[in-house]
């Protein structure tokens, strides 16, 4: 039973990985990656790591890959095949790095891993890989790294929100919430969507900040919302206080 599951999952893992590299249509590539990750979860299951398997499916197949599928389905058409028009130097480099990685893996496998062949693998105690045990490890023994990693993720999320909100749109008051230090430090001509669309403001703004702040405070638009505010005509003053 376990052997059959292992080989099915292994075929899925290797096949999915090959599919990611070989397939030309971006949508199929993403689907191959999904197959790869799901098969990987099945492999974790055969290693008694059921919590890791579930987390693998929920986080990778259920969240990360969902985002990939979204983006590719929206913007990635079947016409623009990936990897067609790339420079030949990149290809040479890719082959070199792949070869180096292969040698590394061979050394690692032949050096240590093959000793375990013919044994039943390491002994696992009762409850190994259960959520209780993993939670115990994470919140007692590895509490500090765990918390640090979560702060790192939080920082990344906040940073993503800040970056995304700065480029929310070109409408009046659509960006730069109020006064902030970062705004003063930022060089002119970097970052905002209005600058990208209408060029750098020639003159100082004439001060519609109060109205802008009133609008900013009340609403925080969803990423899904269509931008339906009136567009700023080119050349109009957009940014003040620089």
């Amino acid at each position: 039973m376990a052997e059959v599951l292992f080989f099915l999952a292994a075929i899925g893992v290797v096949g999915g990985a090959i599919g990611v590299v070989v397939l030309r249509n971006p949508f199929y590539t993403v689907l191959a990656l999904v197959v790869h990750l799901l098969s990987l979860a099945a492999l974790f299951l055969t290693l008694n790591a059921e919590f890791i398997a579930a987390a693998q499916v929920v986080v990778y197949a259920g969240a990360v890959m969902v985002l990939y599928v979204f983006v590719v389905a929206y913007v990635g058409g079947g016409e623009a095949a990936v990897g067609s028009g790339q420079a030949s130097e990149l290809r040479v480099l890719a082959v070199l790095f792949a070869g180096a990685l292969f040698v590394c893996l061979c050394i690692a496998t032949l050096g240590s891993g093959l000793q375990a062949i013919g044994t039943q693998g390491a002994e696992v105690g009762p409850g190994y890989g259960t959520p209780q045990q993993i939670g115990d490890l994470l919140l007692n023994r590895f509490l500090l790294p765990f918390e640090l990693a979560s702060y790192l993720l939080l920082l990344a999320a906040v940073g993503a929100v800040v970056l995304a909100s700065r480029r929310r749109g070109v409408g009046e008051g659509a960006e730069e919430p109020g006064i902030s230090v970062a705004q003063l430090l930022r060089p002119r001509g970097t970052g905002t969507m209005a600058e990208a669309v209408s060029g750098l403001p020639a003159a100082q703004a004439t001060g519609d900040r109060d109205e802008r702040e009133a609008r900013e405070g009340g609403e925080e638009r969803d990423a899904n919302d269509a931008e339906d505010r009136p567009r700023v005509p080119p050349g109009s003053p957009e940014r003040d206080g620089s």
Partner: peptide
């Protein structure tokens, strides 16, 4: 009745 219980459902 896996030990991961509800996580199975979410998966």
């Amino acid at each position: 009745d896996p030990s991961i219980g509800l996580l199975y459902l979410f998966a």
